[in-house]
Each structure stands twice: as structure tokens, then as C-alpha cells.
Measured scan of single mutants.
Amino acid sequence: MDVRRLKVNELREELQRRGLDTRGLKAELAERLQAALEAEEP
């Protein structure tokens, strides 16, 4: 998933699904989601 191409509301939805903080600027949201995705990979 390319988090840079997601819209802010899409980033927030993905973060919320993972129980993560949904507050912040788009860059912060993308960074948070990217870190979560990398942590999920085996």
C-alpha cells in the first residue's frame, strides 16, 4: 500500500482500524501508518 497516495480521511480510517492515533497532519498520519504496515510484515 502506498500511504503517500491516500487521502487524509483514508489515512485516518486505516489508522483507526489499527487502533492508532488519528490526529495530526497528513505527513504524520502517513508516517504512522507506514510504520504500522512495516511492523505487520513478517
Score class of each variant (00 low, 15 high):
20 L>E: 08
7 K>P: 11
38 E>G: 09
19 G>T: 03
18 R>C: 02
14 E>D: 03
4 R>E: 15
10 E>G: 02
11 L>K: 03
35 A>R: 09
28 E>T: 09
33 L>P: 06
17 R>Q: 07
24 G>T: 01
33 L>A: 02
8 V>S: 08
28 E>Y: 01
19 G>C: 12
2 D>Q: 11
21 D>G: 05
23 R>Q: 13
41 E>H: 12
39 A>K: 14
24 G>H: 01
3 V>R: 05
25 L>H: 09
11 L>D: 03
34 Q>Y: 03
7 K>D: 12
6 L>A: 03
22 T>V: 13
5 R>E: 10
2 D>P: 00
35 A>T: 12
8 V>F: 14
2 D>H: 02
13 E>T: 10
21 D>R: 04
10 E>C: 02
22 T>G: 11
23 R>A: 15
38 E>K: 15
12 R>E: 12
14 E>K: 04
28 E>Q: 07
7 K>E: 13
25 L>S: 13
17 R>V: 10
4 R>I: 10
6 L>S: 02
27 A>D: 08
16 Q>A: 12
29 L>H: 05
24 G>A: 00
15 L>S: 03
6 L>P: 02
25 L>G: 14
22 T>C: 07
5 R>G: 08
8 V>R: 04
15 L>M: 07
38 E>T: 07
19 G>D: 02
42 P>G: 12
38 E>W: 05
35 A>M: 11
5 R>C: 04
2 D>G: 04
37 L>E: 08
11 L>I: 08
25 L>T: 13
41 E>Q: 11
29 L>K: 06
16 Q>M: 12
21 D>T: 01
21 D>P: 15
41 E>S: 13
22 T>P: 08
20 L>M: 15
16 Q>D: 13
37 L>M: 03
10 E>K: 07
23 R>H: 08
25 L>K: 15
41 E>C: 09
28 E>W: 00
24 G>M: 01
10 E>S: 06
40 E>H: 07
20 L>A: 06
24 G>Q: 00
32 R>W: 00
31 E>Q: 12
36 A>C: 10
9 N>H: 10
25 L>C: 13
25 L>R: 14
12 R>D: 02
32 R>E: 02
6 L>Q: 04
18 R>P: 01
30 A>T: 09
5 R>M: 12
31 E>R: 10
20 L>H: 06
3 V>S: 12
8 V>Q: 14
30 A>N: 08
33 L>S: 03
29 L>R: 03
27 A>P: 11
28 E>A: 10
13 E>L: 06
3 V>Y: 09
38 E>S: 10
41 E>W: 04
33 L>V: 04
35 A>Q: 13
31 E>V: 10
28 E>D: 11
1 M>D: 00
14 E>A: 06
4 R>L: 14
29 L>S: 03
7 K>T: 15
32 R>C: 01
15 L>R: 01
36 A>W: 06
9 N>M: 09
31 E>S: 14
41 E>Y: 10
40 E>A: 09
20 L>V: 06
19 G>N: 15
12 R>P: 01
12 R>A: 10
5 R>I: 11
11 L>S: 01
28 E>L: 02
14 E>R: 02
7 K>F: 03
23 R>V: 13
14 E>N: 07
40 E>P: 14
29 L>E: 04
7 K>N: 15
18 R>E: 03
3 V>F: 10
4 R>C: 08
19 G>H: 04
18 R>Q: 03
6 L>F: 08
8 V>P: 12
20 L>R: 05
41 E>M: 00
2 D>S: 08
9 N>I: 06
14 E>M: 06
18 R>D: 02
13 E>N: 11
2 D>M: 07
9 N>C: 05
3 V>A: 11
9 N>D: 12
21 D>F: 02
1 M>S: 00
22 T>H: 12
42 P>A: 10
21 D>V: 06
28 E>N: 00
9 N>L: 06
11 L>T: 04
26 K>T: 10
35 A>H: 13
31 E>H: 06
22 T>Y: 00
21 D>E: 12
10 E>M: 13
21 D>C: 05
32 R>Q: 03
26 K>M: 13
33 L>Q: 05
27 A>C: 13
34 Q>G: 11
29 L>Q: 07
34 Q>P: 00
1 M>R: 00
7 K>H: 04
37 L>G: 06
30 A>F: 05
9 N>R: 10
15 L>P: 04
36 A>G: 05
23 R>P: 04
20 L>D: 07
27 A>E: 13
21 D>A: 09
28 E>R: 04
1 M>T: 03
4 R>P: 13
18 R>V: 02
16 Q>T: 12
17 R>Y: 00
25 L>E: 15
34 Q>V: 09
13 E>K: 07
1 M>W: 00
17 R>G: 11
1 M>V: 03
42 P>T: 15
26 K>Q: 14
4 R>K: 14
32 R>S: 03
32 R>L: 00
1 M>E: 00
40 E>C: 07
4 R>S: 15
11 L>H: 00
41 E>D: 11
21 D>H: 01
35 A>S: 09
13 E>V: 07
25 L>Q: 14
41 E>G: 12
30 A>W: 05
13 E>F: 14
29 L>F: 00
10 E>A: 05
32 R>I: 00
2 D>A: 05
21 D>I: 04
14 E>G: 05
24 G>E: 03
11 L>E: 02
5 R>H: 08
11 L>P: 01
39 A>G: 09
23 R>M: 15
35 A>L: 09
18 R>W: 01
12 R>M: 10
38 E>H: 04
22 T>I: 07
39 A>P: 13
3 V>Q: 11
15 L>C: 07
10 E>R: 05
39 A>H: 13
7 K>L: 07
30 A>V: 09
5 R>V: 08
36 A>S: 13
